[in-house]
C-alpha cells in the first residue's frame, strides 16, 4: 500500500473515530496528531517516496491533517456546548423567589413633604431658615405674638392656645416669628428677602385624630419693593400644583389673621380642573392661610411699609400628608409605627 493510500485510509478511519468519540477528544487528538501520533508516524515514510511524487503525497498529508484538525475542533466545540448546557440546566433556580434586599430606611412621610416644599422654593430662589438660632422652637411672647400684631389681650390669641413656660417664654404656636428674626438680619441691598421656615410648632390641644399638640408648619415670606398679592397668588398656585398635581387649581377667600392684611384662606381643588368644567363640580379643600404682611408687623421689624411690601403664607405638612395619602389620624405621624413609616417609599422623589 502506497503512502498516499495509507494517508487516505487514516483520514477515513480518523473521521469515523472522531464522529463517534464520546469522551474528551483531547486524547484522540494526541493519538492522531501528536508527536508520536499516527499521522506523524505515517509522514515519517515521506523520505521513502520518490522525489517527483513527494509534492502530491505531501498535499494529501496536509489535507488529512487539516481535515482531522478541523473535525476535532468542531467536535470539541460541540462537546463544550453540551457540557455548558448541562451545567446551566443544573444551575437553574426559581427566579420568582424573593430577593435578598439590602434594607433601605425611609425618610418620615412629613419629612418627604417638607423636602418637596423645600425643593420647590429653592428653585424659586428662596432661602430656608431652620436653624436653632434663627428659628427656635422655644420663643418669646414678643416674637410669637406681639411682633405678629397680637398684643396681650388680642381676641385672636384664643385661636392659638399656647404652652407657656414663663409669662414671656413659650413653645412657638406658629413658624411666623422666624420672619421677624429674618427681617432683622436681612440686607435689602442684596435683593428681596425670599424665605421659607419649616419646623415644629406646638399648641395646647388634646391629641385626637385631627388634633396634635405638636405638628409642623412651613412659613413663607417675600419682602421687597413691588411685591403684590398677585405674586402671592402665583406663588401659592405653583406650590399647590407641585404638591397636588399640575391640573389642580386654587381659590382664595377672605379671612382674618392679625399679621396679614388683606388675609386669605386658600383652597385647593380636590379634583383635577379642566377648562370645560362647571364651577359646582370643583370640590375645594381648605389648605392654608396667607396674606399681605400687616404694615404694623413690617414696622415692628424695622421695615418701612411705604417702601416695601410683603406677602406671607403658612403651609401645614401634616395636613398635606393626611390629604395626599389619606391618613385619617394625625397621631400616626408621631407614633413611629414601623408598619406606618415603611409605607411611604420615596418613589423617585
Amino acid at each position: 500500500m502506497s503512502l498516499s493510500q495509507e494517508l487516505t485510509e487514516l483520514k477515513t478511519s480518523a473521521v469515523a473515530r472522531i464522529n463517534s468519540a464520546a469522551a474528551d477528544v483531547e486524547a484522540l487528538r494526541v493519538k492522531l496528531l501528536g508527536k508520536k501520533g499516527e499521522l506523524t508516524a505515517l509522514l515519517k515514510g515521506m523520505k521513502d517516496v520518490a522525489p517527483e511524487e513527494r509534492k502530491a503525497v505531501g498535499a494529501i498529508g496536509n489535507d488529512v491533517r487539516q481535515t482531522i484538525t478541523s473535525l476535532l475542533a468542531a467536535k470539541k466545540a460541540a462537546q463544550d456546548a453540551e457540557k455548558l448546557n448541562e451545567q446551566l440546566a443544573a444551575e437553574t433556580i426559581d427566579v420568582t423567589l424573593p430577593g435578598s434586599t439590602p434594607t433601605i430606611g425611609q425618610p418620615h412621610v412629613l419629612q418627604q413633604i417638607i423636602d418637596e416644599i423645600e425643593q420647590h422654593f429653592l428653585g424659586l430662589g428662596f432661602k430656608i431658615i431652620d436653624d436653632t438660632v434663627d428659628s427656635p422652637e422655644v420663643e418669646t411672647d414678643e416674637y410669637n405674638f406681639e411682633r405678629e400684631n397680637l398684643p396681650k389681650d388680642h381676641p385672636a390669641r384664643d385661636m392659638q392656645d399656647t404652652f407657656y413656660i414663663t409669662p414671656e417664654i413659650l413653645l412657638r404656636t406658629q413658624t411666623s416669628p422666624v420672619q421677624s428674626r429674618a427681617l432683622e438680619k436681612h440686607d435689602f441691598s442684596k435683593g428681596p428677602l425670599k424665605m421659607i421656615a419649616p419646623g415644629k410648632v406646638y399648641r395646647r390641644d388634646t391629641d385626637d385624630a385631627t388634633h396634635s399638640h405638636q405638628f409642623h408648619q412651613v412659613e413663607g415670606m417675600v419682602v421687597g419693593e413691588n411685591i403684590t398679592m398677585a405674586d402671592l397668588k402665583g406663588t401659592l398656585l405653583s406650590i399647590m400644583q407641585e404638591l397636588f398635581g399640575e391640573k389642580h387649581q386654587i381659590r382664595m377667600r377672605p379671612s382674618y389673621f392679625p399679621f396679614t392684611e388683606p388675609s386669605v384662606e386658600v383652597d385647593v381643588s380636590w379634583n383635577e380642573v379642566t377648562p370645560d368644567m362647571s364651577p359646582e363640580d370643583i370640590e375645594w379643600i381648605e389648605v392654608l392661610g396667607a396674606g399681605m404682611t400687616h404694615p404694623n408687623v413690617l414696622r415692628m421689624d424695622g421695615i418701612d411699609p411705604d417702601k416695601y411690601s410683603a406677602f406671607a403664607f403658612g403651609l401645614g405638612p401634616d395636613r398635606f400628608a393626611m390629604l395626599k395619602y389619606g391618613v385619617d389620624d394625625i397621631r400616626q405621624f408621631y407614633l413611629n409605627d414601623v408598619r406606618f413609616l415603611s409605607q411611604f417609599e420615596r418613589k423617585g422623589n
Binding site: 424659586l124 430662589g125 428681596p192
Partner: peptide, 15 residues
C-alpha cells in the same frame, strides 16, 4: 386677581 411670580433682583436659592 392676576397670577404672577415676584420679579426683581435674582436671589440664589441654596442651602
Amino acid at each position: 386677581l392676576p397670577v404672577t411670580l415676584p420679579y426683581g433682583p435674582t436671589t440664589p436659592g441654596k442651602l
